[in-house]
Amino acid sequence: MYRWGMVIDLDKCTGCQACVIACRQENNVSFAGEKESKLGRAKFWMNLVSEVKGNYPDVEMRFIPIPCMHCDRPPCTIVCPVAATYKNPEGIVAQVYPRCIGVRMCISNCPYSVRYFNWYEPTWPEEYKKGFNPDVYQRRKGITEKCNFCIQRIRKAKEKAKREKRRIREGEVIPACVETCPSEAIYFGDLNDSKSQVSKLSKSRRAFRLLEEMGTEPKVYYLKEGEWNGG
């Protein structure tokens, strides 16, 4: 069984947000527009969050790209009254869009705030619709969505591997955000495979996870030199 995981190296990340856009284009995530953005309704399955502190010239600025952590003990799935979100056998916390009724309990219980709600029907100019990815389910208003580790890419790789009667190889599944990251700061792979890059990096001295103390057991690891005190 695979256990998909991600590692993001904050020492390499430049805060460029290529991952953010790649994810949106790959997963048909609509833009919200000015008004809706100001209400915090823009959807970023991959979200670059920032923090600025200090006084000139002792200023500190931090960026962290935050996808869904795909928690091994996800607080979001247990609270869903209709099991529209669940952890699949490969550890991906998946979202069954047609089943979601939009109570948003999963949203309020996600400590990482990475679940996004469709406050309105997602809209696109007619022209943009030509660029839809047909592999990805088109969401509608009233349901919740979030990063799913580009499950459509995993599935493709799996089908190919199945046809060729083998396991998925290291590096064969590349989510859109990982594929584009200019500074090669994101890694993806099978945490169960002790030889994979992600499992090695996840055991690195620099590795930590967000809100580790909550016991959610995220499968997204971050790397950072020295003390990390950004929460």
Binding site: G40, S113, K141
Partner: peptide, 12 residues
């Protein structure tokens, strides 16, 4: 849609 309310992210 629920967009007509004042809710958003993370005030869901």
């Amino acid at each position: 849609g629920l967009g007509v309310t004042g809710m958003g992210h993370p005030m869901s």
